[in-house]
Computed example of a mutant assay.
Amino acid sequence: MVWGALAIVYVVWGSTYLGIGIAIESIPPMLSAAIRFIIAAALLSGFLLVRSGPAAFKMSRRQFLGAALVGVLLLTTGNGMLSVAEQYISTGLAALLVASVPLWLVVFRFAVRDRPKTLTLAGVLVGIGGVGALSLTGAEGGSEVGIVVVLLASVSWAVGSFVSGRIAMPANALATSAVEMVVGGAGLLVLGTGFGERLDVSAVTTRSWLALAYLIVAGSLIGFTAFSWLLGNAPISLVSTYAYVNPAVAVALGALVLSEPITVQVIVGGLVILVGVALVISTERKGTTRAPDAGAGDGGTPPPARRRAEPVAEQPGG
């Protein structure tokens, strides 16, 4: 069961970047993300009500606002900017740049005088060097504007993951995610409409509808459930490997399905980023008993609630 759940997280969360790329072919990016998270929140809430009753959503005003803030950072600005960026850059390049989220988290820790280990800082320097190299040489996968936007999305995910362990959050992890998704989705709806996005149902292709359905069911529900189960049933060292595998899956699927180019620069820059992330995760997890946060892991599905900040965050593609 562990390997089955891990395979789901590897493939499903790695494939959400492709799903986003196909969905926005004929659906405005922010509105597609809004539809995705609002529907996923409704389905998750319904499941939780049937399983645990209204008591599962018991939370204080402060806890609700905490979950709402994280939802805005992870989904409204984080996933929203990723969806916008994928109009201009390849899905594989987006996934590799999003893999830098754990690196920004360490930077934030340093800023609040939570001094990481020397090897952790070395990993950050290596990883950020890879981000810089990929940003400067990966233009064949898209425009400079798209690269800047997806990096801003990564920073937003990192901020959301960072504050989630430092503010009041609801006790129930599934209820927390439901609040994050509905608030994040509502924020995307407001932003999309404000920026002039309009949904022309007649213009949406079957291909885009199927991609959106996949993101809702597979990315935001199945992938999320598998990851949540792994947190309590698998070693941290094993669960953490999704941070390295998801970008590789995204690059491979982008090349196979969308014929995206895999240049030498993308391979080298991506490997440098993943080496930095691997160094950060392998160093930091020696001092923790829990798996790392998954703020961005699936292309945007919020992670289960955390009571303290962990050194790394996911992957948004899910």
Score class of each variant (00 low, 15 high):
1 M>V: 08
6 L>Y: 01
9 V>M: 11
12 V>H: 09
21 G>P: 07
22 I>G: 07
24 I>M: 10
24 I>G: 11
28 P>E: 08
30 M>H: 08
31 L>H: 07
33 A>G: 13
35 I>V: 12
40 A>H: 08
41 A>Y: 08
46 G>I: 01
47 F>L: 15
48 L>R: 15
49 L>E: 02
51 R>K: 14
57 F>E: 00
60 S>K: 00
66 G>E: 01
69 L>D: 08
71 G>R: 01
80 G>K: 06
82 L>W: 06
82 L>G: 03
83 S>H: 10
84 V>S: 12
84 V>I: 11
86 E>G: 02
89 I>R: 02
93 L>Y: 13
97 L>M: 04
99 A>H: 07
100 S>W: 11
113 R>Y: 02
125 L>C: 04
127 G>K: 03
140 E>Y: 15
141 G>H: 12
142 G>A: 13
143 S>K: 10
145 V>D: 13
148 V>Q: 05
149 V>M: 14
149 V>K: 11
153 A>G: 04
153 A>T: 09
154 S>D: 11
161 S>C: 05
165 G>Y: 08
170 P>I: 00
170 P>T: 00
175 A>R: 01
176 T>F: 13
183 V>A: 02
183 V>F: 12
183 V>N: 01
188 L>G: 14
188 L>K: 02
188 L>Q: 04
189 L>H: 06
191 L>H: 05
193 T>E: 03
195 F>H: 15
209 W>T: 03
210 L>Q: 10
213 A>E: 03
214 Y>H: 05
218 A>I: 02
219 G>H: 09
220 S>M: 13
220 S>K: 09
229 W>I: 01
233 N>Q: 09
237 S>T: 07
238 L>N: 01
240 S>F: 05
242 Y>P: 00
247 P>V: 11
248 A>K: 15
251 V>E: 05
251 V>W: 11
253 L>T: 09
255 A>Y: 15
258 L>I: 09
260 E>W: 03
266 V>P: 00
271 L>C: 05
280 V>D: 12
281 I>Q: 08
282 S>I: 04
286 K>V: 02
289 T>Q: 12
291 A>Q: 08
291 A>P: 07
292 P>G: 03
295 G>E: 10
297 G>Q: 04
300 G>C: 05
300 G>P: 00
303 P>T: 04
303 P>E: 00
308 R>Q: 10
308 R>G: 07
309 A>N: 09
309 A>T: 15
311 P>M: 11
